[in-house]
Amino acid sequence: MKEGAKYKMERFLKDSVIHILLIMVSITCLFPLLWMVGSSLKTQQTIFSDMSLFPRNPMWGNFYSAWTKGGFNMYFINSLFYTITVVSGIVIISSLAAFAFSRLKFPGKNIFFYMFLAAMMIPLPGSFVPLYVLMTKLHLVNTRIGYILCMINVGLPLSIYLLKTFFDKMPVELEDAARMDGCSRLGIWWNVALPLARPAIAVVVIFNSLNVWNEYKLATLIFSTKSLMPLQRGLMIFQGTHITEYPLLMAGMTITALPIIVVYLLMQRHIVKGITASAIVG
């Protein structure tokens, strides 16, 4: 009886410490978001004097001003288009490539795979100038297709790595069974590998969506026409060399963060599964 009470006490203390830690981590994650929303409701003057998280007189009009002044109508549609096309492209190409690296035998397989891995080590700004030179030579500067191809290229290495790791752990028996049912290699990829890889694909989708949605520097390099720019271009309007319109910037950031939060919430279940993927395959 005494030991039972001691065990309960130990368990209670352990749980309390874990929960306190988790609450602290949650607060540190949520505070910047709350601060962003709170600041989006202040004025340019009160943002520097009113230190409260939510102002007494919220300026809801800031969201409308940010949307119109930032030209979000056009940029929002552009970003949506780039995110959908780039992420779709990455999922299709990386899953095909990862399946090939995992299941097929061909000369130079490992070299090609390591080359993809090596590409992960090069930070995007490091490849700006060569990319721009290449795009210019291919006459793809200031075109949507040029930007989309570059962004697919940026997202491929990590996605291939994630999916290959997943496919490596897929039981060979499943593939054999599908082949006996008359599936071609492409059929196995589509009917067996992809449905099983759903959690890993969810991770690929969320990582790349976030990357494309928030990308701006490459867009600045590739595009010179305003109407082709992504959403982040709208936010730049509020950041001057010396002056920043913080309330409008924060309102704009709240607007741009919302879609990605929704995508994350929708895929949350798969992402958790994807991260612990090895336990799920088969």
């Binding site: 700004p125 700006f128 100038v129 721009y132 030179v133 210019t136 030579k137 500067v141 701006y216 520097k217 600045t220 390099l221 010179s224 305003k226 730049m236 950041q239 060399t241």
Partner: peptide
């Protein structure tokens, strides 16, 4: 008029354009 901000993004753009004579 074409705006490229912030200044580091602008600098990258100008350098890249110089290398391609654009």
């Amino acid at each position: 008029l074409e705006l490229y901000a912030p200044s580091d993004a602008y600098t990258q753009k100008v350098r890249a354009a110089a290398q391609t004579n654009t």
